[in-house]
């Protein structure tokens, strides 16, 4: 578990980062909290001759909440998501999800940007951001651009981000209504066997809007538009839950691993989703 040799860069500005990425191309990668990247380097599954540490870049770890709009800088840690009291009030699903990631040690280091950029289907924040309808903001040699989280993920470890771009922030409308992030895992420090992010708004005793995203049940996070649609207009009764689960099952494509065979994962995905919906509905 010893990584191959690498050069360590610690630039002070985003311009320098972009320049280093331009200079070293494929051989360079940025590092945020390092809690996905360093293990991969130690296993020699990732070779990174030039490691660019983002720690010293200014203004990359800000949480802003303005006029119902929330923006999280890439270097905001998972620990920050848990302890920021205003954020916990305005977007409590983030806290609920972050608390289910790994353990405190990992959360002190791991960042929202790294979690979103990594592209591991096991990461929890991509599903949460898809559920929230967030936009991911990138900067590159040609300037800034923004992509919907729901369009960002292409395949395992493949995202819309170009190699010379940096993820700078993620932003979304402060959600309203009920929320839940439900995750089944084997133990502390494990990725999800199945997890579901659900947001629900309620009007006159019925579901007015619903958003559903699933984690680690495909090679990308899965926002299930139809699962959400199946709930809208219902009073969250049993039939609505079954319809949402059926829709979701049409969208996921889990594969077998040590967490279990496909049939089990599909079954658990349904159970987890029902629980998430029920909890979100109870809070709506």
């Amino acid at each position: 578990m010893i990584p191959a040799a690498f050069d360590y860069h610690r630039p002070k500005s985003m311009d320098e980062v972009i320049a280093l990425l331009g200079e070293h191309g494929d051989d360079a990668r940025v590092m945020a909290g390092g809690h996905s990247l360093i293990p991969m380097m130690k296993l020699r599954m990732a070779e990174v001759p030039h490691l660019i540490d983002l720690q010293d870049i200014e203004n990359l770890a800000e949480i802003t909440i303005e006029e119902g709009h929330i923006s999280l800088g890439a270097m905001v840690t998972q620990h920050d998501l848990i302890t920021h009291s205003k954020l916990a009030l305005r977007a409590p699903i983030l806290r609920e999800a972050a608390l289910q990631i790994a353990d405190p040690q990992v959360r002190y280091m791991g960042t929202i940007g790294g979690n979103l950029a990594n592209g591991d289907p096991g990461n929890d924040m991509p599903g949460v951001m898809q559920c929230l309808g967030a936009r991911i903001n990138l900067i590159g040699p040609d300037g800034a651009r923004s992509v919907a989280a729901r369009d960002y993920y292409e395949a395992a470890y493949m995202t819309d981000r170009e190699d010379d771009e940096v993820l700078v922030s993620v932003d979304f409308q402060a959600p309203s209504g009920g929320y839940a992030y439900e995750k089944q895992k084997r133990k502390i420090g494990d990725y999800a066997t199945a997890a579901a992010a659900v947001m629900i708004t309620k009007s006159e005793g019925k579901i007015a809007s619903a958003s559903v995203a699933m984690t680690n049940l495909s090679d990308v996070p899965v926002w299930s538009e139809e699962a959400g649609a199946a709930l809208v207009g219902t009073a969250c009764d049993g039939a609505a839950l079954e319809a949402a689960v059926a829709a979701m099952l049409g969208d996921i494509d889990p594969s077998e691993d040590n967490r279990g065979p496909v049939a089990f994962k599909r079954h658990v995905a349904g159970v987890i989703l029902k629980r998430a919906i029920t909890r979100a509905w109870g809070r709506a």
């Binding site: 066997t193 279990g260 089990f264 079954h267």
Partner: peptide, 11 residues
Amino acid sequence: HDHWRIWQTAN
């Protein structure tokens, strides 16, 4: 008796 094997028993 991990989760999936318990599930499989129940199943």
